[in-house]
Simulated scan of single mutants.
Amino acid sequence: MEQVKFGGELISRLMTHLCERLDGCLGVGLSVWPDGALLRAVGVAAELDQAQVEGREGPLVDASRDERQAAGKVGGLDVVAVPGSWGDGGPVVLTVYLDHEPEAEDLKAIEEIEPLVATAAAVIEFCAGEVLRADQMVRMVQHRRYIEQAKGLLMGARPCPPGDAFELLVRASQHANVKLRDVAMALVLVACGELEDADDMSMPPKIAYDTAQRLWEALHV
């Protein structure tokens, strides 16, 4: 299939541009949760993004769990966190650190640049610098669909909001040290018996099935 290359320099330039455009901006970060990867950082974002990932709390984590924009304070600074494109490890979250509460002009600038940053990051970073093939992009979309399907199953078995269902998947995957996407795929198989459009995809390992089985059974006790 046709191959597509993107330069990582584009992401850095976009993030630096956003930081310079906003008065009182002390940092811009790009991270993935629950995968825990810091993809790019400008200024204080390197330290404060990592603190949120390790502490499992903060606007970055909230934005990833609930798939919506989140705001709050970290390290005495105001933070705006915006989830964007998905990769294998979770949503790409753009974080912006300000020395003041975000104003309308701040949010407008973030909304303009975030889609460009997130899309470029999904293409570049989740392929570890390799050339991204069209079929790899398709698999990324399929993984996202299975995660959403697994969240729906959990929400049906244990009435809860999407963020809590996502947290259940995250905890299960981290406890078993298995990829989130594998636990999600295995859960769909355990609950439904089959996966749609999975002919060209690798099936999850046994540990993912065992983890999904325990999780599913625990919800039906």
Results as ranks from 00 to 15, higher is better:
3 Q>M: 08
5 K>L: 15
8 G>V: 10
10 L>K: 15
12 S>T: 13
13 R>H: 14
14 L>Q: 13
14 L>Y: 13
15 M>R: 02
15 M>V: 06
16 T>H: 15
16 T>W: 11
18 L>D: 01
19 C>P: 00
20 E>R: 13
20 E>P: 00
20 E>I: 04
22 L>W: 01
23 D>E: 13
24 G>T: 12
25 C>M: 07
26 L>V: 10
27 G>K: 03
29 G>W: 01
29 G>E: 01
31 S>V: 06
32 V>W: 06
33 W>C: 00
39 L>V: 10
40 R>K: 15
47 E>K: 14
48 L>H: 03
49 D>S: 12
51 A>N: 01
51 A>I: 06
54 E>K: 14
57 E>K: 13
62 D>A: 07
63 A>M: 07
63 A>T: 09
64 S>Y: 04
64 S>N: 08
65 R>K: 08
66 D>L: 08
69 Q>M: 04
71 A>S: 15
72 G>S: 05
74 V>H: 00
75 G>S: 09
75 G>D: 03
76 G>Q: 13
78 D>H: 15
78 D>Y: 15
79 V>K: 00
80 V>Q: 08
82 V>L: 07
83 P>N: 15
87 G>W: 09
95 T>W: 01
98 L>W: 11
98 L>N: 13
99 D>W: 03
99 D>V: 09
102 P>M: 06
105 E>Y: 11
106 D>V: 04
107 L>F: 09
108 K>C: 02
110 I>P: 08
111 E>R: 12
114 E>K: 14
115 P>H: 11
116 L>R: 15
118 A>Q: 10
123 V>Q: 05
123 V>A: 07
126 F>S: 14
130 E>L: 05
132 L>W: 05
133 R>H: 09
133 R>C: 04
136 Q>I: 01
137 M>R: 14
140 M>N: 09
142 Q>E: 13
144 R>M: 08
149 Q>S: 06
151 K>Y: 00
151 K>M: 12
153 L>G: 07
153 L>D: 11
158 R>M: 10
159 P>M: 05
160 C>T: 12
161 P>C: 14
167 E>R: 15
167 E>Y: 10
168 L>Q: 15
169 L>E: 02
170 V>L: 02
171 R>T: 06
176 A>D: 03
177 N>Q: 15
181 R>Q: 08
190 V>C: 09
195 L>A: 10
197 D>T: 04
199 D>E: 15
199 D>C: 03
203 M>S: 14
204 P>Q: 05
206 K>T: 14
211 T>N: 05
211 T>S: 12
211 T>E: 05
212 A>I: 09
212 A>D: 07
213 Q>M: 13
214 R>G: 07
216 W>L: 04
217 E>F: 09
217 E>C: 11
219 L>W: 06
220 H>R: 15
221 V>W: 12
